[in-house]
Every structure is written in structure tokens, then in C-alpha cells.
């Protein structure tokens, strides 16, 4: 029986929405390959995350709850995955593409001598084989890739797969007894600087408001972009230019080397539309661009374009939402 093991991601005791897309991708895989989906939750104190998973169609949930997993570093996590895979023998290990899974999944694949495909956006049966579509060259190329071996690793783009459906059946939960090696010095996490609370993550939000080179400093960015985002209950994003200039933190960067997002509404403010930025947002359902420059390339991909100064137009938009 073919099995897919889905690596579940959580933050501050909450299941991440991107993992629901990973479970959705696993059911598409099961539809062409046959077989079942099992989930793997690692951490310390993961009870609430396991409960949140129980009605999502997994045949089984493996919980690895261990004090040494309070910090989910790649060396620890890859060891947990290797032990779980050896014991449960899945055909696929799958996770949503995020900095978390990008860090640890290739390491686990190497421990198990398994090949891996990153950033899968589609899959289908071709003859006897399942082939995968993935994005490369900064979103300029979609390649169709075959992966051989008894065990295969995949990361999927959350924006390319639907979330798993909830159903009435409760998944069986089983503890997996991870045996950490006795004489290992694990990587030590010294500190963590989390983003400003109260705003959703751009990969999970329904609306993303993003700012580019038009913004000259952090205060203006926060007032104009942050102001509209808060009025709309949206996430905030930024182009690479602003991150490079030190105006916005890296965790806001949308694009080839930053986050890839596909919200219902993407509002690009003062963004020129470099190909590396477009690679991170072009799958959004509706794209709005506001830019002073009528020739900005961003207008070529926008559903609605408005040639205007963001410093004047956007505070006005924010005032109207607040006034209504």
C-alpha cells in the first residue's frame, strides 16, 4: 500500500495553513497513485496541533512530542523524519515549501538517500509514472520532472493546491518513539525575532498589500502600506529593493528568493514589477497595481491598474475604509 507522509508545520502552537495545502496535495497524489496519507507532527507540546489535524482525512497522525524538539532545528528534525520513515515506510514525504521545510527536508532526504523535487505546482499520471511540474529560473520556466527510487521527497507550492477538506472521520493518533542519539550536540537556537503580531502572514492572507521603491523610508511604508493593510485586515509584503535598502525586514520580501504568495487580492503599491518580484505573486487571483509611472511593467500583469501617486491615493483609500 502506497503511503504519503506529510510533514506538518506549526507556529506558536497553531497549525499553519500552508500544511492544509500540503494535505490537499497529498490527496491529489493519492488520487493518481492510490494509497493513503499520514501526517507527522514534531515538537514539544503539540497536542493542540494534533487535535486541529484530526478531521482532515489522514489515515494516521504520527506525533513526536519530545523536550529536545522545543527548537525544531534541521539536524533534530531530519533525524526524526529519518527514523519515522524507516519505521513506517512511506513512498512519498511531502511538505509545503517554506523556510522551515526547505531547511530540513533536503537534509532528511540525504540521510535516506532519496531524490527530491522542490516547488511542485502540479502532478499527473503519464503512462505508469507520476510526473511533477515545478517552477524554476525565477518563474520563467515550468519543467516536467520524473523522480525515481522507492522513496521520494517533495515540497509543494501552497498556492498551487487546494486545502484539504474537513470530514467527519477522526484520524487515529499514534505517538512515535523518537530515539535521539546520546552523544550528539544539536544546533542551539540563541534567539528568535518574530514579526509584528496582529498581522497575518503573507502566505496565508486573503489580501496582501505590498510596497516597492516608491517608499523612501520605514515610517512612510508603515503609514501608507501598513495603514491600508490594517484597514483591509490584510498582510504586508515588500519588494526586494526595499529590503536591500533596509526599509523593510527580509521576512516581508515577496519574489523569487522571498515568499511566493497567491492571495485573492494582491495590491502592488509603487512596485515597478521586476520579473523576480512577479515570480512571487503572479498567481494571485486579482492583481491591483498603483504606480506613478504609466510604463511600469507591473501594469502588464495587473487586472486593474491606476496611474497615481501612492503617497496621495493610498491614505485617501484608507480614510474611506475607516470612514465607511
Amino acid at each position: 500500500m502506497r503511503k504519503t507522509l506529510v510533514l506538518i508545520e506549526h507556529t506558536q502552537g497553531q497549525l499553519r495553513q500552508t500544511s492544509l495545502h500540503a494535505l490537499g496535495a497529498a490527496s491529489e497524489l493519492a488520487a493518481v497513485e492510490g494509497g493513503t496519507t499520514e501526517a507527522l507532527v514534531m515538537g514539544h507540546g503539540v497536542g493542540a496541533v494534533v487535535d486541529a489535524l484530526r478531521s482532515l482525512g489522514c489515515a494516521r497522525i504520527w506525533a513526536v512530542d519530545h523536550p529536545q524538539l522545543a527548537d525544531l532545528t534541521a539536524d533534530r528534525c531530519a533525524d526524526v523524519i529519518a527514523q519515522t520513515v524507516k519505521a513506517t515506510e512511506p513512498s512519498f514525504v511531502l511538505a509545503a515549501a517554506s523556510t522551515f521545510s526547505k531547511d530540513l527536508l533536503p537534509r532528511a532526504a540525504a540521510l535516506l538517500d532519496a531524490g527530491m523535487i522542490s516547488d511542485v505546482v502540479g502532478l499527473k499520471k503519464e503512462g505508469d509514472e507520476t510526473v511533477f511540474k515545478r517552477v524554476q529560473f525565477a518563474g520563467n520556466v515550468i519543467s516536467t520532472v520524473q523522480l525515481s527510487g522507492a522513496l521520494k521527497f517533495l515540497t509543494i507550492r501552497p498556492s498551487a493546491f487546494p486545502m484539504a477538506n474537513r470530514n467527519a472521520t477522526q484520524s487515529e493518533v499514534q505517538d512515535f518513539p523518537w530515539q535521539p542519539a546520546a552523544n550528539v550536540t544539536w544546533t542551539q537556537v540563541v534567539s528568535r525575532e518574530e514579526r509584528v503580531e496582529g498581522r497575518p502572514d503573507a502566505t496565508e492572507a486573503r489580501i496582501v498589500v505590498s510596497g516597492g521603491r516608491a517608499f523612501k523610508n520605514s515610517e512612510d511604508f508603515e503609514r501608507v502600506v501598513g495603514g491600508l493593510a490594517d484597514a483591509l485586515g490584510a498582510a504586508v509584503g515588500s519588494s526586494r529593493a526595499l529590503v536591500d535598502a533596509g526599509i523593510t525586514p527580509n521576512s516581508l520580501q515577496i519574489g523569487q528568493t522571498g515568499k511566493v504568495v497567491a492571495p485573492e487580492l494582491y495590491i502592488a503599491l509603487g512596485i515597478s514589477g521586476a520579473i523576480q518580484h512577479m515570480a512571487g505573486m503572479k498567481d494571485s487571483k486579482v492583481i491591483v497595481a498603483v504606480n506613478k509611472d504609466p510604463d511600469a511593467p507591473v501594469f502588464e500583469a495587473a487586472d486593474y491598474g491606476l496611474v497615481a501617486d501612492v503617497y496621495e491615493t493610498i491614505p485617501e483609500w484608507t480614510r474611506r475604509i475607516k470612514g465607511s
Binding site: A114, G115, M116, I117, V131, V135, G139, N140, V141, I142, S143, T144, V145, Q146, L147, S148, G149, K152, K282, I287, F299, E300, A301, A302, D303, Y304, G305, L306, V307
Partner: peptide
């Protein structure tokens, strides 16, 4: 273990309305 079978350009987004 991986083999690229083919490549294609992604579908282009159509420019919308000003």
C-alpha cells in the same frame, strides 16, 4: 534521481484594465 522531461514557458497573465 530526478530527470527533467520537458520545459515550457508559464502562461502569461493578460494585462487588464486601466
Amino acid at each position: 534521481r530526478t530527470r527533467v522531461l520537458s520545459m515550457e514557458a508559464p502562461a502569461r497573465r493578460k494585462a487588464g484594465l486601466r
